[in-house]
Structure formats: C-alpha cells, structure tokens
Design a binder for these strands. Structure first.
Length: 776
DNA sequence: TCCGATCTATTTTTT
DNA sequence: ATAGATCGGA
C-alpha cells in the first residue's frame, strides 16, 4: 500500500499491526498522530467498516483534525463514520442512547464545573457548613477523585478509610455532601463530567447485553494520550475491548500531565500485565525539533526517576541555542517577548501564527496580551473562559436547557428572574423549600404555583406567566429548527431586549455581539445536513445543538482556527501542538513549578514533565524567560528563578539573563536560605491543607487498586518552633497573626492543635507542627 | 424587591 | 485586579 511508504520502519510496523493489543510509546514529536491516522486509514483501506472503529482522543479538535487527515489520505468522506472524539463526548452519545436503563432521561443535561460548584455552594448553605472549611473546589475535588476511581457515594460513605481521612482533615461531612450532590444531579436529570464516565462504567457493568452490543459493534479501538487516562476511562476501554482485544493505545509517560484530575501513568505501565500478548512499539525519532531542543528536553526529563526507558533523538539540524531571558517584572517580560516576536518576524520572515507563548497559569496571559497589543501583534488566547462560559451566553443557554429538560434546576434558577420579572430571592427560596418538602422538582412547583397559596397572588401570577412562556417554547422543540426556536426564545423572553439596551459601553456591545454570534452559530448548525441517520424529519433541533455544548472547549472554537496570530495558552492546553517559535514564560519558583506542587516528589516530577512538554512544542527556536517581580492578587511580589532553570544544561543555552546559570544557582541557594523562615510560617496554614489533600488523594488511588499499603508519609518541615512546649493559657507570638493567648490544646503528636485567641485576628485553630509559635 | 457600597476570596493545570 | 457575595438602605 502506498501510504505505508510515508512512514519510517517502526511507524510502519505499528500501523500494520492491526489485530490484538498494541502499545505505542511515542516520544515527543515522533509522529504519533501520524501513526494513528495512518492506522485508521490503513484499516479502512483494508476493508474494515469505519462504523466499527472507535478512536478516543484528548480533545474534540484533535478528533476533527484527525478525521480530516484520514479523509485526505483515503480520498473519501468515509472517515466521518468512525466514532472519533473525546471519552466524554463519545460516551455521552452512548449514554443518551441507553439512558433509560440507568434511570436518566435521554435528554439529560451535562453540568459543567460552574453548575457543579453552584450546587455544592447551595448544599453547603442548606447544611449550614462553613464554606471556608468546606471549600467548594476542595469538596468537588474529593468527589471527582472518588468518581474517577469508581467509588460511588454509597461506597464512599461505607469506606472507613476515606471517612477517616476526611475526619482527619476536619471535613467529616464530605461523604454526606457527595450523597446530597448526587441526589441533586439525579433529580435534575443531570450528569457532571465525571458522571459521564462513571455511568458508562455502570452501564457496561450492569447490562451485559449492552456491553455485548457495543463490543460487537466496535471491532477496533484506538486510544490517544493514553498516559492521561484515569481509572474510570481505563476500565471502559478494557471492558469494551475485552471481546477481541483489537486495541491500540498510544502514549508517552514523559508527557503525563493530568495526574491532578486522576490520570494514572500506571495505565501505560500495566498494559503488559493486562494483555500478555501485547506488542510494544517505541517511536524514538523526533521529526519536530532541532537537536538543541531535543537534547535539552532529554536532559531535563532524565532527572525524573519514574519513567519508561527510551532514547528520543533527531537527525534534524543542531539549530540555535535555547535563549534564556530574565526581566525585572512581568510587564517587562511581556514587552521582551513581544519585541522578540517582532524582530524575529522581520529577520526570519516568520508569520505570527508560527509563534506560541506558553505559561503555567491562565492569569499570566494578561501581561503578554497587553504587550502584544501595544506592539500591534495579533494574538489569540486559548483557555480562560470559553465562549460558552460567558455570562450572557450561559444566561441564554439556560433558557434552552430548561426548555429541553425542565428539571434542570440550575438553569431554572438562573433565569427565573432574568430578565427581571419581579420574582425575588425570598420567593425563590420559599419555592425551593416547598419543593424539597414535597419531594417534587422546582419546575413542578413553578408549573402549578397558582393552585397553591405559598406566595402572594401577584408574585404567583408572575411565576405562572414565566412557566407559561417556557411551556410555549417546549411545544416548539421538535417543530422548529434549532435556530428558529433559539432566536424566538432570545427575542420573546426579553433577553435580547435586555442586552440590546445595555450596549452603552464596550462590554455591553461585546455581550450583545456574543449573543449574536451564538445565534449565528445556531443558524449554521440548523442549515447543516443532519447526521442522524434515523431522523424521521430533516430538521436539526435545539435539543441536538445543546447535546454536548458543555463539552466544547475554547480549543474547539472554529473561529480561532484560521487567523494568522500568535497563540497564547497554558502548557496543558498546548499538549499535542507544535510551533516553530515557542516562548515559555514565567519560569519562577512557586509559579512553575507551581506552589501547589512542591509537596512530593511525584508532584515535582509532574511539573517537570510539564516543562518537558513545553520544551518539546518548539520546532525551530525556544525562548525561556522569568521575571524578578510579578503582580499577584494586585500586589507586587518578588520572585526567584525556577529550579528548572538551574537544571538547564549550559551547552544548549544562550544565557541572556544577565547572571550566568551557575551564578544563578549560588544566588538561589542564598535567597532560599534568607527567605526560608519567613516563607514557611507564611505558608503554614495552607501547606497543612495541601498535604492533607494529597495524602488522602493518594489513599483514594490505593483504595481503588486494592493495594493494602497505605502511604501516609508527607514531607515534614523540620523546625517546629516551640510547638512541644505550648500549653493552655500561654501568651504566644505568631509570625502572621501576631500576639495571642492559647485558649485550648487538643490532639497529640502530629495532630496536636491549639486554639489561639489573637489580639488582632481573633480565634484561630493552628496545627502546632506547622504553626511555629513562639512562647512569650 | 432592588440597588449600590463594601468585603472577600481567588489562581494550577481541564473534560 | 476583579468578580462574586453580602449587607444595609430605599
């Protein structure tokens, strides 16, 4: 076959090894996507029906691009029939087909993180729990990690170790919150992201006939970015592929960067034990980057202990050295980057789209943006809030959601008084209480509000009006096409009028335009050909449009694709992408590596892999930079260069930072020592929480894998001040809180805590091993 | 019920 | 810096 001529030896072998379990360990830039696309093309050419192929990718964009490439290779549009997409979108599709079996409506709503968070907040309020102790993000994190390890809320509450861990971290109610949260979702006919995978597992586990149906339907499975799959995803693949084991997984352990959301490198490492006849292919030749870049990346990643042995090499040019830049501030860093882009553009005749600026956190985009704007360099930012998470868009979408699934309480609450129709907080709260008491959904109550006397007549009739309006939309769901109905809702609900009237500043204009853009998108969608094979009518409905809106990310925004502009994104978002010129900015300690990741070797190694991913995005030239000061939460902070800078091998580096790398190491040591005591006290409270969290997370994972050994070891700060000697009644001094008096002491050993009444900040509970109190 | 002033927490990364 | 929550007054 001709297509095979375009592959190197290992790539070709990996492509033609179609049957049985295959694992492709693909170093950065080694043509992994090429192998995947060619393999699918090869299968189709060989006569495999595209309908029988499932290909799981990490983003929808990757799926789309792969599909296009396959079509151009095989020269037909057959590739559109391959089931290709993210785990979430593919299994959402299957769940909609099978929903009634697991007690969900076919039109279930997918809740995004905002929806989840708002539910948790409401539950915390109802339960009268302190949302400072039970931080919604932390609670959600616990729930998410349980779900990713397939621990149901019932199992969670019955799991003595998890319960003990929560108790230990002073949050014994997490199990209860998980249950309440889950009940809430169930009542709303909604699933969160993790539920999509969790419920797929339930479906495949409890309904053998369903499992068999999909096992028969899909004869070939391909999974990209396998190193970033979690236990839940792993098990789905294992179950589905169990019948014929025609499974190809592609991944690179060195690029595993999603452990924070449950990704487990073990999934790669365990392939051999799961599939005894596994064929392994190692793609080690890098076609992407210069020797300098490849070698620098290698030298960085070699510092990690945990990894599969491989030697990534390239026959490309040596290239220029990697440039290291230091600047005085984050704004300066922006200017420096913008200026460099401007110069290279002229000197090397490069286009804007050949440049990428990569950073650790989304917040860093700002300084870059401003600098680029000043120099009139076009750019586009990925990440941050996506189009669909803008307030004005979410408001309008809430109407659509409610019309499709009236039990979607989040949607109902969002719009019942938007635009203002005189239904206030008190009334809404009353409704919620009554609905809860009678165990009916909020919508059910709203519908029949006038047959009750819960609210004053005037309010009740306003609510009735709202319900009537929503019902009138429902009637049109399958009659009008998506655009017609959406447009009608936007206009007759008053949303359009509201936004139109608020166009008195730039922001208002933008909001209005965003809504127009949404409607344009809907129009386009409605005019496309329906791909529902069995659709009896040819219209594309609003329901169809809304199906996986929640799964779209910024990267899926088609509008961003074809513009010639500099790309700004987080390193996470840059996974799988490549650019001729790459700037990695903000290489500062506590930023990259993140302050959240300094607690264990595993965390640091993940940050280092992230650095590796960032470096290996570059084809021609790479620039690294750090600033000596940076604004954080509105005030100026002085920073130190990242430890990763001292890990750079000098022979690959063109050091323009002012200080040589080696000098840097010395200074770093000294400043570390100088700021040592200050930093520890300052971060004491926070680090306690972080360590608790990681320790319990570790336990979760162990649990899921039935390991008996529980690793509770966390790194300990050595200096505990006067901790052991502190007693009730003593006057003490705390670096941050000042003077205070010890009210009480409880716990022993590691867990010894003091309640201290501080003169300035009042009562605080301090863990003595971190608090470094001084006895006065 | 609504509106503005004031306080507050936020920032790791994402489907 | 800034969005969101909270509170008091109209």
């Amino acid at each position: 076959m001709k297509i095979l001529e375009e592959l190197n030896d290992v790539q070709r072998k990996a492509v033609i090894s179609t049957d049985g379990p295959n694992m492709i360990i693909a170093g950065a830039g080694s043509g992994k996507t090429r192998v995947l696309t060619y393999k699918i093309a090869y299968l189709i050419n060989k006569g495999v029906d595209p309908f029988n192929i499932m290909s799981l990718t990490f983003t929808n964009k990757a799926a789309r691009e792969m599909r296009e490439r396959i079509e151009s290779i095989i020269g037909s549009s057959e590739a559109r029939n391959v089931w290709m997409g993210t785990f979430h979108s593919i299994f959402a599709r299957i769940l909609r087909i099978e929903a009634d079996r697991i007690g969900y409506p076919q039109n279930f709503t997918i809740y995004d993180t905002d929806d989840s968070k708002s539910i948790i907040k409401k539950i915390l309020k109802e339960q009268q729990l302190d949302n400072k102790l039970y931080k919604p993000n932390i609670v959600l994190g616990r729930i998410s990690s349980a779900k990713n390890n397939l621990i149901s809320h019932i199992a969670y509450n019955n799991n003595s170790e998890l319960m003990a861990a929560d108790k230990e971290s002073a949050k014994p109610k997490i199990g209860l919150l998980y249950t309440l949260y889950q009940e809430r979702l169930r009542k709303a006919g909604a699933m969160d992201f993790d539920d999509l995978l969790f419920n797929t597992n339930v479906l495949l586990r409890d309904f053998p006939e369903v499992l068999l149906k999909y096992q028969k339907r899909f004869k070939y499975f391909l999974v990209d970015e396998y190193q970033d799959t979690n236990y839940s995803q792993y098990l789905i693949v294992k179950r589905l592929a169990a019948r014929n084991e025609n499974l190809t997984v592609v991944g690179d352990d060195a690029q595993s960067i999603y452990a924070f959301r449950g990704a487990n490198i073990q999934n790669i490492l365990n392939m051999k034990t799961d599939y005894s006849d596994l064929k392994t292919f190692k793609l080690e030749q890098n076609y992407r980057s210069t020797q300098n870049i490849v070698n620098l990346a290698n030298s960085i990643i070699s510092r990690n202990k945990k990894q599969i042995k491989k030697k990534v090499w390239t026959s490309n040019d040596t290239g220029t050295k990697v440039r290291l830049i230091s600047t005085s501030s984050d704004n300066d860093e922006g200017n420096m980057v913008a200026r460099s882009i401007f110069e290279i553009k002229n000197e090397e005749k490069a286009e804007e789209k050949e440049f990428a600026i990569l950073y650790r956190t989304n917040a860093q985009s700002r300084a870059m943006e401003e600098a680029l704007r000043r120099m009139n360099i076009p750019y586009r930012i990925y990440g941050g809030l996506s189009f669909y998470s803008r307030k004005e868009i979410k408001d309008l979408l809430a109407y659509y959601r409610l019309v499709i699934n009236p039990n979607d309480e989040e949607a109902l609450l969002r719009i019942i008084n938007y635009p203002k129709r005189g239904i206030g907080k008190t009334s809404i709260e009353k409704l919620q209480v009554v609905a809860n008491q009678n165990k009916i959904s909020l919508w059910n109550l709203v519908e029949q509000i006038q047959s009750t006397n819960i609210l004053p007549k005037a309010t009740a009739s306003r609510i009735q009006e709202f319900a009537t309006m929503i019902k009138s939309y429902m009637v049109d769901l399958d009659k009008k096409n998506a655009f017609e109905l959406a447009d009608h809702i936007a206009k007759s609900s008053g949303v359009f009028r509201e936004l139109s009237a608020a166009r008195d500043d730039d922001e208002g204009v933008m909001r209005f335009e965003n809504v127009e853009e949404l409607l344009n998108g809907l129009k386009e969608f409605s005019e496309e050909e329906s791909d529902e094979v069995d659709a009896d009518n040819s219209i594309r409905t609003l329901g169809e449009f809304m199906q996986d809106i929640a799964l779209y990310t910024d990267a899926d925004d088609k509008n961003k694709e074809n513009s010639n502009s500099v790309t700004l994104m987080t390193i996470h978002a840059a996974k799988g992408l490549e650019f001729p010129y790459v700037f990695i900015v903000g290489l500062e300690e506590n930023l990259f590596p993140s302050i959240m990741s300094l607690n264990s070797r595993a965390d640091i190694e993940e940050e280092r892999r992230l650095f590796y991913v960032a470096i290996t995005r570059a084809e021609k030239r790479l620039f690294l930079s750090y600033a000596k000061s940076r604004y954080k939460w509105g005030d100026l902070q002085f920073t130190e260069p990242s430890r990763f800078i001292s890990e750079l091998e000098a022979k690959f580096i063109d050091d323009l930072s002012g200080d040589s790398i080696f000098e840097q190491k010395e200074t770093r040591k000294k400043t570390m020592e100088a700021s040592d005591s200050k930093k520890k006290v300052w971060g004491s409270k926070r680090s306690y929480e972080v360590q608790q969290q990681t320790a319990t997370q570790k336990r979760d994972i162990m649990q899921a894998k039935n390991l008996t050994k529980v690793d509770t070891s966390v790194s300990e700060p050595e200096d505990t001040g006067d901790a052991a000697k502190v007693k009730e009644g003593m006057e003490v001094f705390h670096e941050r809180f000042g003077r205070g008096k010890v009210v009480s002491i409880d716990g022993t050993g590691q867990n010894r805590k003091a309640t201290v009444s501080f003169n300035k900040v009042g009562d605080k509970h301090l863990l003595l091993r971190f608090a470094k109190l001084k006895i006065l």
